[in-house]
């Protein structure tokens, strides 16, 4: 035991030689994604004259908006060391639901239930919140691991989507949704503004509220959170609902953005959202990271997807490259955790 020694030796004297190294190591998880982003940006800017333009920056922002909205809630879940695999399916079913409750053109062969726009939006939000509650119930009350619980929910949500549209495509959504999803104000697409506001909101909640602190603490050491008298189940349940509602909002705006609501429309968003959160440096083991990391992760993915189009790469190779970058990010994630633990213990 060294408590006697540490009284006599001030920490600053012992730590000084390593301070910079320690700081760099502990910030590894924030530095690495940012470096990745700068490298990717530099590479594409050099490789293609059409990449580093203001127009294209706008494209990238618009392209990452739906992912960004979904990733806000997922960040909460991953910070708690859980996972939500149902986000894309919940986004899809919420988008379909809002169209289902809106009057469609006569040629759309869906037995829909037209309602006023506000009612359609509220019902769709209620649906995604309810699915999130089911996730929360399975995870906290029954005790199903989130990986399995949300895997089941993925199927359930996809099943509801299928029943609602029955293989058809719906086009109309309430005016508010279509405004936010597909129009611009002063040259800035509304969907980018919504994504930015939601990311900002998520950041404020995580950083400045008591709930946000609890999320970090539960993710950092669940046992300790419980022994500190926190209601761990309530916090875990809440993040599952937050995740589902964020996914639902992303789904509604996404449908407006794409101009149609149909089955399997959001399938790629599951991997993209998880990738954005993890590539950004939020720890899969919980307790480390945040919305700032998610934003960097979103840009890494956005620049990568958009840039690969600009340099004219074989589209099949593109998928492989995305996979490799994700793998590299996971390696850094695990490695940064280990470095951090070594410095802390």
């Amino acid at each position: 035991m060294t408590s006697g020694e540490s009284v006599t030796v001030p920490a600053s004297d012992r730590k000084r030689p390593h301070r910079l190294a320690v700081m760099l190591r502990s910030q590894m998880r924030n530095i690495a994604p940012f470096l990745t982003l700068i490298c990717l940006f530099g590479f594409f800017a050099a490789a293609s004259p059409s990449f580093a333009t203001l127009d294209n920056l706008g494209n990238i922002l618009t392209q990452i908006s739906v992912t960004g909205i979904i990733a806000v809630g997922l960040t909460f879940v991953i910070l708690c060391a859980e996972i939500d695999l149902s986000i894309a399916a919940i986004a899809n079913v919420t988008g379909i639901a809002v169209a289902y409750f809106t009057l469609q053109e006569s040629y759309v062969n869906i037995a829909n239930v037209p309602m006023p726009g506000w009612a359609a939006i509220l019902l769709a939000l209620a649906l995604c919140a309810l699915l999130g509650l089911v996730n929360a119930f399975g995870l906290t009350v029954i005790g199903i691991p989130s990986f399995i619980m949300t895997l089941a929910m993925m199927q359930i949500a996809a099943g509801i989507s299928a029943l609602l549209v029955r293989g058809q495509i719906a086009y109309k959504v309430p005016p508010l949704v279509s405004t936010l999803g597909s129009t611009s104000i002063g040259g800035v697409p509304w969907i980018v503004i919504v994504a930015a506001l939601m990311l900002l909101g998520g950041h404020l909640v995580l950083t400045y509220t008591r709930f946000g602190r609890y999320v970090y603490m539960v993710g950092g050491n669940r046992e300790a959170a419980e022994y500190s008298g926190l209601n761990v189940k309530l916090i875990l349940g809440s993040v599952m609902v937050i995740s589902a509602v964020c996914a639902g909002i992303g789904g509604m705006l996404g449908v407006a953005h794409f101009g149609s609501a149909q089955q399997n429309e959001f399938d790629t968003y599951l991997l993209d959202s998880i990738a954005a959160v993890v590539v950004g440096g939020t720890s899969l083991f919980g307790g480390r990271g945040g919305i700032g990391n998610t934003i960097v992760g979103l840009f890494v993915l956005g620049v990568l997807n958009n840039g690969l189009d600009h340099v004219n790469i074989d589209s099949f190779l593109k998928i492989l490259i995305r996979g490799l970058i994700l793998l590299a990010a996971l390696v850094i994630n695990v490695y940064a955790q280990r470095l951090r633990e070594r410095t802390a213990d």
């Binding site: 602190r213 050491n221 008298g229």
Partner: peptide, 19 residues
């Protein structure tokens, strides 16, 4: 190990129960 948050600063470890 079961009681404390090793990666968090001392003050957050102390304040957690009274937040």
């Amino acid at each position: 190990r079961d009681m404390l948050f090793h990666q968090e600063p001392v003050y957050k470890n102390i304040s957690i129960s009274v937040l």
